[in-house]
Simulated scan of single mutants.
Amino acid sequence: MIFRRDGEPGRMRYGSAGLTRVFGGSPIGVLARLALLCVIVGLVLDQLDLDAFEIFRWASHLVRDAIANSADLLRLIGRYFLIGAVVVVPIWILLRVFRIGSGR
């Protein structure tokens, strides 16, 4: 017997609880809904004259451009970090030395 959170006995469930948790419901039901959704989306994309491979190519170019631009951004942030560290770290070290010397 399976108990719900409130302690009341619940109905018996068939199948693996792990698969139900992963799929968010009955695996067969979820797969059936996904298949129906795929057909509907495919129909809409076909009516809009969009090619799935073209969408995939566009997404891959988008990811490639994002990675290339992020490298430039990281290089710029790293440069600002080093410029700031030249000023901030020595001041921080001096403040730590003066705090130790003051007996705190």
Rank of each mutant, 00 (worst) to 15 (best):
I28C: 06
G7H: 01
I67A: 01
V22S: 10
R13V: 02
S60G: 03
R11C: 04
R75T: 07
L48H: 12
W92A: 14
I2W: 04
D65F: 02
D65R: 02
R96L: 15
G29V: 01
L36Y: 06
C38I: 07
I100L: 14
V30S: 00
R96V: 12
F81H: 12
G84V: 01
L82A: 10
M1R: 06
G7Q: 01
G18A: 08
R99N: 13
L73W: 09
I91D: 03
A85K: 08
E8T: 08
V22Q: 12
D65H: 03
R79H: 06
L62W: 01
R21G: 06
V39P: 02
G24V: 00
D72L: 09
F98C: 11
D49G: 11
V41N: 02
L31C: 09
L50N: 07
D51W: 12
N69M: 10
A66Y: 01
S70I: 04
G18I: 05
I40L: 14
V30K: 00
A59I: 06
P27Q: 00
A32G: 06
G24T: 00
I55S: 07
A71Y: 12
A35H: 10
D49H: 15
A35N: 09
Y14M: 08
F81N: 11
M12P: 02
Q47Y: 10
L43N: 04
M1E: 09
Y14V: 05
I55W: 08
